[in-house]
């Protein structure tokens, strides 16, 4: 009986923590060289993180940005959208071998599972997200 109670208590506790996290989860965040480890690598162990490497000087990035924002909202916490500004995060550009932007990478369990470059049309990005979320 005690064991049963303990199990229920643990389950409730997990659920509470999950809900708490959900309340706090921001679906669109900005990250840089310093916060990348925590906000992308660590966070992607719980929820997929889509990283958008962009810069102000890149017009296709400016086109893609609002589309990704919209999708992050539509998918309602199924993934977190993290934006990395190349102007201030040169370290990450090197680390991930960015040679063309916009570059979008999906992180799961701390690793890149898929990526694309260029301002793809919305239907194509949706397919890409669905394909990658589906695998989890």
């Amino acid at each position: 009986m005690d064991e049963e109670l303990q199990r229920i208590r643990e389950m409730k506790m997990k659920e509470m923590i999950k809900n708490l996290r959900r309340d706090r989860m921001e679906t669109v965040i900005e990250v840089n060289d310093e916060s990348f480890q925590e906000k992308v690598i660590e966070q992607s162990k719980g929820v997929p993180v889509v990283v958008d490497f962009w810069a102000q000087w890149c017009m296709p990035c400016m086109m893609l940005g609002p589309t990704l924002d919209k999708l992050a909202k539509d998918y309602n916490e199924k993934f977190v959208l993290a934006k990395v500004n190349m102007e201030s995060s040169r370290g990450l550009a090197q680390r991930y071998g960015i040679m063309s932007i916009p570059a979008v990478k999906m992180f799961k369990n701390g690793k890149v599972v898929d990526e694309f470059v260029g301002a793809l049309p919305e239907p194509q990005i949706k397919d890409w997200i669905d394909r990658n979320l589906g695998d989890s």
Binding site: A55, W57, C58, M59, P60, C61, M86, A93, G97, I98, M99, S100, I101, P102, A103, E115, F116, V117, G118
Partner: peptide, 17 residues
Amino acid sequence: LLGKGVSYCATCDAAFF
């Protein structure tokens, strides 16, 4: 090699080279 050195947008990508 698109995105791995092949680019169609110099304004976007010049700084990476």
